[in-house]
């Protein structure tokens, strides 16, 4: 790329790094889960797969400056962590195994809960700054 996208400059540089780590770990986790025992916990493993796709899309979109795609991916991420977090706390029996988003991301130091809020804040800031 000749020049950096505005979403991956400045603080965005750190944000993309954090998203990349989650993309990598969610992909690895769901790859292993889907390959070794899909029938053990189909709902949890499908959600792990969805989480992996969302993190990969968000990482690439932020890195390349695809702002609308980034907003959509991070929106799905926010809905996912809140929805799955709530369901896993209220109806734990639905999930035979943990996902990245279970218990609001407790297994990952609650970073999955904070990350979409930070991501949306950053995208809003980037787009607003250019408008003025």
């Amino acid at each position: 790329m000749p020049e950096q996208a505005r979403t991956s400059r400045g603080f965005g540089r750190v944000l993309v790094a954090v998203y990349a780590i989650f993309a990598l770990s969610a992909t690895a986790r769901s790859g292993v889960q889907l390959a070794t025992g899909f029938s053990d916990a189909p709902l949890a493993y499908l959600l792990s797969g969805l989480a992996a796709v969302v993190y990969v899309v968000a990482t690439i979109a932020l890195a390349r400056g695809a702002e609308r795609t980034a907003v959509a991916a991070i929106g799905v991420e926010a809905a996912g962590v809140l929805g799955v977090g709530l369901l896993s706390v209220m109806q734990g029996a639905l999930f035979a195994d943990a996902t990245v988003w279970s218990d609001f991301g407790r297994g990952y130091g609650y970073v999955p809960l904070v990350l979409p809020a930070v991501g949306l804040w950053w995208l809003r800031r980037v787009t607003h700054r250019s408008a003025t």
Binding site: Q4, G10, F11, G12, R13, V14, V16, A17, A20
Partner: peptide, 10 residues
């Protein structure tokens, strides 16, 4: 990834 950003964020 970090060295390309010439600021504290790198």
């Amino acid at each position: 990834w970090g060295v390309a950003e010439k600021s504290r964020w790198g």
